[in-house]
């Protein structure tokens, strides 16, 4: 008798808890980011996550009246984590890959034009991708750079002596500065931002692989994607978007932001 009573109590409790959760109007939007990807998403000096994507997402959530939460994904597992509901989107300088669309993910309109570059040490004497024949190149696991070296740029990759995959781009650069590798293959904005803060690095002036950044949602979340896209458009129109992009931290990326430049050419 006691046990039945306890069981009923537990069930009632669960229901009332979920009722409370449902009654809360404020939708919580969990943004999945790579916490080590400046200037798009990173841990700021004040210990809070910041970056261009984070600021835009915050503005979107403010606009829609949602509560934003940030979830740092493990970059090479990001889509699995998205599927397992750990976050509602992956929005962190993420390159749109055909394989994502084929796998059924809903991908937003591209918002950034990106290229990949090779970063070497200034004193290494290396000046072009051809110089890297037989050399060791580091790339971050799970990035489009890695996908490119296995795909479109496989011919170039075959001339490299060896390709080392690291679990963060920071480790790639540590390996480069510590002379364990000869070059790092990385997204241009990340390379520019890192080279600006660290002396002795040279970005080889060759743009390898043209690609675009977008936001990934789970398959079936097309409506959510549309809501976010609309909000971003509204922010572009009311100038908030340009305001965020005008901050000095984002000087390296502002020229490649598609929405801004489309707006300017239209105006």
């Amino acid at each position: 008798m006691k046990k039945t009573f306890a069981a009923i109590l537990v069930i009632v409790m669960i229901f009332s808890l979920s009722a409370v959760a449902l009654a809360d109007d404020g939708k919580v939007f969990i943004m999945g980011i790579d916490p080590e990807y400046p200037p798009f998403s990173y841990l700021g000096d004040d210990g809070e996550y910041t970056g261009f994507d984070v600021e835009v997402c915050q503005a979107v959530c403010d606009y829609l009246g949602w509560k934003m939460e940030i979830f740092g994904v493990n970059w090479d597992e990001k889509l699995v984590q998205l599927d397992s509901l750990e976050c509602d989107c992956v929005w962190s300088g993420m390159t749109i890959l055909d394989s994502m669309k084929e796998a059924g993910y809903v991908i937003s309109e591209p918002y950034y034009d990106n290229t990949q570059v090779l970063v070497v040490k200034e004193d290494s004497g290396l000046a072009s991708s051809a110089d890297l024949e037989g050399k060791i190149v580091a790339v971050q696991l799970g990035t489009s750079g890695e996908a490119l070296l296995n795909g479109d740029l496989a011919d170039l990759a075959a001339t490299f002596g060896n390709i080392v995959t690291c679990d963060s781009f920071l480790k790639c650069f540590t390996e480069l500065e510590g002379n364990a590798v000869d070059a790092v293959f990385v997204d241009l904005p990340v390379a520019a931002s890192y080279a600006a803060n660290h002396d002795g690095l040279l970005i080889i002036d060759e743009q390898l692989g043209a690609e675009q950044y977008g936001i990934a949602f789970r398959s079936g979340d097309a409506e959510l994607c549309a809501q976010v896209e609309e909000a971003i458009q509204a922010l572009v129109e009311n100038g908030t978007y340009a305001e965020i992009a005008s901050k000095s931290e984002y000087v390296d990326i502002v020229n490649n932001l598609l929405f801004l430049n489309a707006n300017e050419s239209a105006a």
């Binding site: 994502m100 890695e146 995959t165």
Partner: peptide, 13 residues
């Protein structure tokens, strides 16, 4: 590590 690389490029578990 190689397993992770494959998992990532193939979007497979």
């Amino acid at each position: 590590t190689i397993g992770k690389q494959i998992a990532n490029s193939q979007t497979s578990f």
